[in-house]
Amino acid sequence: MTIHRTSNQVQTDSMATGTPPSDRETRSPAADANQSMDVRINGEPRSIPAGLTISDLLTHLDVRSSRVAVEKNRTIVPKTAHDKTPVEPGDTIEIVSFIGGG
């Protein structure tokens, strides 16, 4: 059972365990601004490393369930295309899953 973690801890953990993408590991702490980009994820503005695919983004956000659906600019990105689809500056991303409902 994984305990509840904040997003800051998540980033620290995934870097410590050496998960991809590789560009994150090679980046110095003083990474310059053009190595990150601004996107909107689930309605919130967010700055994320540049060059991520949808798969990378899910890893970056510590989304581990396979039962999620991702929209990029209102178009669904099928699971089979997650590792081929880049996240680009200004993208609006929605990541949804299931919760309790009637």
């Binding site: 059972m1 994984t2 305990i3 509840h4 973690r5 904040t6 997003s7 998540v10 994820i41 689930n42 309605g43 919130e44 956000l61 510590d62 989304v63 581990r64 369930s65 039962r67 999620v68 659906a69 929605e94 990541i95 949804v96 899953s97 299931f98 919760i99 309790g100 409902g101 009637g102």
Partner: peptide, 18 residues
Amino acid sequence: TVAVRRIDLSAQGDENLL
């Protein structure tokens, strides 16, 4: 039945309905 909602990016983990 289940509902479809944005995932909570601050609370990922195993505490998932599914």
